[in-house]
Amino acid sequence: MKNIVIIPALNPDDNLEKLAEKNIALGQEVIVVNDGSLSRYNAVFERLKDKCTVLEHAMNLGKGEAIKTALRYIKDENQRCDYIGIMDADGQHLPEDMAALLKAAARYGSSLILGSRTINNDVPWKSRMGNIITRKMFHMVSGQFISDTQTGLRAFPAGMLELMSEVKGSRYEYEMNVLIICAQRGISMKEVPIKTIYHDKENSCSHFHKIKDSFRIYRDLFKFSASSFSSFILDYGLFVVFSVILPSSSWGVMTANIAARVISAGYNYSMNCRFVFYEKKTLKTALDYLALAAFILVINSLALEAFTAGLGIPVYTAKIMTECVLFITSWIVQKYMIFRKAGQKGGSGSGQRKEALS
């Protein structure tokens, strides 16, 4: 089994050489990406060229671009490998933990493996608060819980190389976008506990910019939420219009609901492709989305009929209640059916449970 570890680096200290050497000693091949470091760090990268592959950016392009540069190199140079790992260059990740993630990737096959730190009071406050906010927002918009959404220690099978190299994002937002894409596609995500290492209380060795990089990370989460909310507004508005035009009978209400749902679903699909996930409209994605939309439409129509005809609830109130039922139903289906099924395909069981290091 051949593994490749990618280490993006910007103005690294001596930890980088130690990380590369230890990973090599553990049997991994290493690709270091010099992401536009200052010239005084050239000696570090020159020494590394005798031990591993070193790729270089003429200027700083960001962590996401550095990772994708290495992924494209693996693809373009036809570097045969089974599993790929990614780790930070600042010494916050242990090579032994990287090896544990690669072992977990081999165990679960088609899953994204995340190195999960223990987020407690020993973690610098800005890192702790950032992780709490981000994981709650990610859970809210995706229906999945990841305890450490900001971890930079990850591993995945080579079969995901194409997907990972096409995820949008140049800097730290790339890592969040990977989670969003995996959640959207039903790719199982597994967490493996790793050691939590910070050099000081302010985590001064990090190149993370609180304002700029936080905006980039949350921007795509907000876009994901905005797409869903605007689709709901469109759906409800069209339903009101159609219900006024059509007869006030059971079939009229049903027709208004179906027509509104079909239009709003098409709108939501286009918005997600163009502004959220940046994917081309393909027959496969359209058919996948159509299947999900058809299922939701059936549940939506049955609930609306039950509220109006069965319980005699006014139609506009019933529509709001129906959307609430739909939200709960959608969450249950994703959590206990779609993502559980994805996990079983990888031979891993269900959920995002943490695995013990072995």
Rank of each mutant, 00 (worst) to 15 (best):
I74A: 08
A89P: 02
G91L: 05
A89W: 00
L101K: 00
S110I: 11
A106I: 09
Y83H: 11
R72S: 15
T69R: 04
Q92G: 15
Q92R: 15
K75F: 13
H93K: 09
A106F: 10
T69K: 08
H93P: 05
A100N: 15
Q79R: 14
G85H: 02
Q92E: 14
N78C: 03
Q79P: 03
A105T: 08
C81F: 06
R107E: 08
D82T: 10
L101R: 02
R107Q: 14
L112F: 13
K75T: 13
L112I: 12
L94G: 12
H93T: 14
G85E: 04
G109Y: 05
D88F: 05
Q92K: 15
K68S: 01
I74Y: 00
M87V: 08
I86S: 02
Y83R: 07
T69P: 00
Q79W: 00
D82G: 11
H93N: 15
M98I: 11
K75C: 07
R80E: 15
N78T: 09
R72H: 03
A70L: 03
A104G: 07
G91V: 08
A104N: 11
E96D: 13
E96A: 12
K103E: 14
G109W: 06
L102F: 07
Q79C: 13
Y73K: 03
E96S: 10
A99K: 12
R72V: 09
K75A: 09
E77I: 00
A89D: 10
G109D: 13
D82L: 04
H93Y: 14
P95R: 07
G109L: 09
R107C: 11
K103T: 12
A100P: 06
M87P: 05
A89C: 11
I74S: 04
K68C: 02
I84A: 01
R80N: 13
N78S: 11
G85V: 02
L71Y: 05
P95S: 12
L94H: 08
Q92T: 15
A70H: 03
R72E: 12
I86H: 03
I74E: 01
R107M: 08
L112H: 06
G91W: 07
M87I: 12
A104M: 15
N78D: 12
A100E: 06
A99Y: 05
R107T: 12
L112Y: 04
R80C: 11
D97I: 05
Q92N: 13
S111V: 06
T69A: 02
I74M: 02
K103P: 02
D76W: 01
N78W: 04
G91D: 01
L94Y: 12
A89E: 05
Y83C: 10
K103N: 07
D76E: 14
D76K: 09
L71C: 03
I86Q: 02
L101E: 04
K75V: 13
S110N: 15
Y83D: 10
R80T: 13
D76F: 07
K103W: 06
A100T: 14
I67D: 01
A105V: 03
A105G: 12
I67F: 05
I67V: 09
S111R: 09
L112G: 01
